[in-house]
Design a protein around this nucleic acid. Sequence first.
DNA 1: CGGGCTGATGTTTACGTAAACATTACGCAG
DNA 2: CTGCGTAATGTTTACGTAAACATCAGCCCG
Lengths: 340, 340
Amino acid sequence: MSRPKAPRVSMADVARLAGVSSQTVSRVANGHPSVVGSTRQQVLAAMKELHYRPNSAARALKSGQFRTIGVILFTLSSTGNSRTLEAIATHAALQGYAITLIPVAMPTQDSVLGAFTRLGELAVDGVIVIMEVHLLDAATVTLPPNVQVVVVDSDAGDRYTVVDTDQADGARQAVEHLLALGHRTVWHVTGPEESFASDRRAQAWRDTLTAAGREIPPPQRGDWSAESGYRAGLALADEPGCTAIFAANDQMALGVLRALHERGRAVPADVSVVGFDDIPDATSFIPPLTTVHQDFAEVGRRCVEGVLRQIERGETEHGTALVPTRLVVRASTAPPIDGR
Amino acid sequence: MSRPKAPRVSMADVARLAGVSSQTVSRVANGHPSVVGSTRQQVLAAMKELHYRPNSAARALKSGQFRTIGVILFTLSSTGNSRTLEAIATHAALQGYAITLIPVAMPTQDSVLGAFTRLGELAVDGVIVIMEVHLLDAATVTLPPNVQVVVVDSDAGDRYTVVDTDQADGARQAVEHLLALGHRTVWHVTGPEESFASDRRAQAWRDTLTAAGREIPPPQRGDWSAESGYRAGLALADEPGCTAIFAANDQMALGVLRALHERGRAVPADVSVVGFDDIPDATSFIPPLTTVHQDFAEVGRRCVEGVLRQIERGETEHGTALVPTRLVVRASTAPPIDGR
DNA sequence: CGGGCTGATGTTTACGTAAACATTACGCAG
DNA sequence: CTGCGTAATGTTTACGTAAACATCAGCCCG
């Protein structure tokens, strides 16, 4: 039934039908000016009749460009990654670039190295790495020389072009919001150790408390998952002085909310909770979550701009571009009950 | 600082250094048997020294195959899509295939048509469409003849190869679970109209109630978002006879939980709630959500298998492959309070 | 009125790979 | 010892496109 041997239509076929040379077909395809109107019409008609589609492999071979950007990432399960990826794909498409996904099975240097090795054979002009950069360091040696790199989630702005959310400022806003409400100090649930974003948020949390002259409670280590937030929340629910919690992402905040609920600590009456990310579901948490809004779309847009600038203009300017964040106040934060 | 003109290393360069012909290099690269050991070693050494990487464009031009699968989807914001995509990417990589993302800006026929037109020029051997198939119908005519298609979220098994979760059976399990607990009937919050998955779940809900001889309450229309679930939940909270709600996905269930909470209806004491998807966060809802687990990894794996079978063996067998679902009972369901 | 110039189109070539075909050299059988 | 077969390697060619160069016709200006 199906014909696997569908013969591909080439410029030569179109040229034959239109009665011109294949070079003229090429000129029409690329919008070259020096083709007279009547000829152009003939060629266009022939293209349409034969359903001509340019062969991207030949085009890439000739031009040395693939018009494709590779995106290396570890997982799509985190909201941040998948939303950044979506924004990247959208903006790349707008610029006429396709996206090739390069998933890395596990966040180990071996896996990353493997991904980069494969990358050498892949048809990409540039790469966006959504990953902590330390994992990338070992792999750098094998990076094909023509491939440009932009990195998210890193502080390696001296060696790469880095685009990231302004993690520190977001965390500062969260902590200051809680302090401004009158809380004596703020407890923190962190992300996993390997994450630069988590580090950065924790550091800013510490710095903001220090700057305000507040005590720094021991941080609870999480792993971004709601489950880990739940465990941290159970621990914090038993801390008598804990009236304000800043969770490093919304999913852990969800877990914290559940733990507090189970232990009979009311939010925000007894304890205030702030998250980070502003995932769409955050408005429907119980109660709706005060959180730090990240502009993933903007991060994606700047990533694409960054690689394209490198690819098309050969500019390799390193440095870090920070995308601002914004605190969104909902119902999970309130002043503490005095006299506790 | 950077050298944009890094000259690409070709087989000819390797051949020169190794003192053989480029054809011999090709044979070594492709593991052809008739190359004697010593020659092979020389070539491999030369490859390593020059950091040779095969040029995929040339290879594709020669072979007519790109070893790439395109994935067309509308959005990554839904858990299902992004997790299916991740599974697809992982399995494709295992088979030596890359994934090219083709995002469609809006779920309109025009957008889809545009995506498919671009597709013609893209370097892909096959396509996986994660989208309701009706949107695809208008675009089909422009599908390049060599490209194989597998569809998710559709009942078009007579015209395409379709892989999907067994939506109907999942919904049936959810409803039967609630009836078995003793609820008189089950109310339903649906997904958006255009979604086949939503239709299918709603249909199975209706059928299961009918088969049990129960009354069928008017369904509440949602759009997959937690916000829409919240609105539906507010409406249902005021329904006196409503003791059991089946939401067509977990996010809408989250919204329902919040609405019930705000109206003072306890879950599961007053009302039981069941979701669909089993997103990781579902364990941390208040209370932890009983839901229908979808095996996205398996869906992704079968999609890849399906396209590859078509690409590599030219088999174009249509039909629908259903991936089974499993009800996960947590704390959001319980028998109704009698005498209401 | 003719030479050169410009604009439209055709011809040649190269991109990197790999199939198809050609050429060695070596070993073994007659 | 000669010839043939086979295994190893080299040479040619084609894939589809587009840059570079070549050709041709018409027209402007001296």
